[in-house]
Simulated scan of single mutants.
Amino acid sequence: MIDLERRKKLALHLRHLSVGLISNDDFEENLMDDVTHGWLPEQYYRSKQAKSDDEIIQPMLELCWGLYDDTRNHKLKGTDKLSNESLKIIARCILFLQSEQEYEWPYFNANNPLLKFSLGEIIITILSIGQYYRDKRKEQEIAFAEFKKLGNFEVWPFSTKINTRNN
Rank of each mutant, 00 (worst) to 15 (best):
R7L: 03
K8W: 05
K9C: 11
L12T: 12
G20D: 01
I22E: 00
S23H: 07
S23E: 02
D25Q: 09
D25H: 08
M32H: 03
D34L: 10
T36Q: 01
G38L: 13
G38I: 04
L40A: 14
S47I: 03
S47Y: 03
Q49V: 09
A50Y: 05
A50H: 04
D54G: 04
I56H: 00
P59R: 01
L63R: 09
W65K: 04
G66P: 05
D70Q: 06
L76Y: 04
K81G: 06
L82R: 03
L82M: 06
S83G: 03
L87E: 02
I90E: 01
R92C: 09
C93N: 12
S99K: 03
P106W: 13
Y107R: 11
F108A: 05
N111M: 11
N111Q: 14
N112T: 06
P113C: 08
K116M: 12
G120C: 06
G120R: 07
I124S: 06
S128F: 00
G130V: 05
Y133H: 13
Y133S: 09
K136I: 10
E141N: 09
K148G: 08
G151N: 11
G151I: 05
E154K: 07
V155S: 13
P157W: 03
S159L: 14
I162A: 10
N163I: 10
R165K: 11
